[in-house]
């Protein structure tokens, strides 16, 4: 149960990060290798915002929750307009370009923020004991075993992730900007022939994708720490999730994030984190062999 909860926290943050990657790939057909660095930037900006603002940790955290995704989103949009647009969104060249972006962001962070891992204080953090049922003398009874507990913050992370994911889903299916993004995804030329400024849509999508990664990172820094190399793991896991879920499929991405996050949490607790990664990678290989379009992907026409 404890393992499942830890897994759910991982899954929640992973879902946010992966949905950003999936959105960018789905609409723009760009494999964003720098995605993990936008995640890391989110965490680092969260730390600097939280520490520069005094007072109760909740104030700093709330500010970080807003500022970090916005700043990262704007940075990403700028990167899109200055780099990706220049190379015409060519699939191979964007991979190389985003690898370059990865190192630039990473090294600039190392030079300015430094190599230390720094924590951000959670806005609230109550210990919650969890009940367990057992067959006692008077039949079924609840009791609170020692050590079985979580924190209110972890539950809040899960809740926040669900809210944001629902928000993304509503944006894609119910709003005008979502309609424009989907039209761009389906047929770029025809979108242009019907007055959709595709380049601006791309910049916005790239920004939103990076912003979602940053948001995931802000949520995780009170649990983990902000560190300049922290982007590698989420990048790898996001790719795993996106491949399993089907490139560009949002529901598939969320489901795969749940699957990978939960199994990662559970296996890490009972066996070892390495085994969890091995199994996830094995799963990717199996999916690629037996269902290359992903569990929920549609075959490219």
């Amino acid at each position: 149960m404890l393992a499942a909860l830890e897994g759910a926290v991982t899954a929640a943050v992973l879902a946010l990060t992966a949905i950003g990657l999936s959105l960018v790939f789905g609409v723009m057909r760009v494999v964003n290798v720098a995605h993990g660095e936008f995640y890391m930037l989110g965490a680092v900006i969260a730390w600097s915002v939280a520490t520069s603002l005094g007072g109760h940790p909740a104030i700093g955290f709330a500010a970080a929750l807003v500022i970090a995704p916005v700043v990262v989103g704007l940075l990403a949009a700028a990167a899109d307009m200055t780099i990706l647009k220049r190379i015409n969104y060519d699939p191979e060249r964007t991979i190389v370009a985003t690898i370059g972006l990865l190192y630039i962001i990473q090294q600039v962070t190392l030079m300015t923020y430094g190599p230390e891992a720094r924590p951000v204080e959670p806005p609230f953090n109550h210990r919650l004991a969890l009940p367990w049922v057992e067959w006692g003398e008077q039949g079924l009874a609840l009791y609170w075993p020692w050590g079985l507990s979580t924190t209110s913050y972890k539950l809040a992370v899960i809740g926040a992730a669900i809210v944001v994911l629902l928000g993304v889903w509503v944006m894609m299916t119910r709003t005008k900007i979502g309609l424009i993004m989907r039209a761009t995804q389906l047929d770029r030329d025809m979108a242009q022939a019907f007055g959709i400024p595709v380049e601006r849509v791309y910049a916005i999508v790239f920004g939103i994708g990076a912003g979602l990664a940053a948001l995931g990172a802000v949520l995780i820094v009170p649990i983990q720490q902000a560190y300049y190399l922290m982007g590698a793991d989420p990048l790898l896991l996001s790719f795993i999730v996106v491949i399993i879920g089907g490139l560009g499929s949002l529901p598939g991405t969320v489901l795969a994030a749940l699957l990978i996050g939960m199994s990662d949490g559970i296996i890490s607790v009972f066996f070892s984190p390495t085994l969890a990664k091995i199994l996830a990678t094995l799963l990717v290989a199996l999916v690629l062999v037996f269902r290359p379009q992903g569990l929920f992907g549609t075959r490219a026409a």
């Binding site: 309609l179 989907r182 389906l186 047929d187 025809m190 007055g195 959709i196």
Partner: peptide, 20 residues
């Protein structure tokens, strides 16, 4: 034809209406 295949008829028309 190049329709937005995964969108509904109404949504395809809406894209047209948004243009101008």
């Amino acid at each position: 034809r190049r329709l937005f295949t995964e969108l509904t008829v109404a949504q395809n028309l809406e894209i047209g209406l948004m243009t101008r």
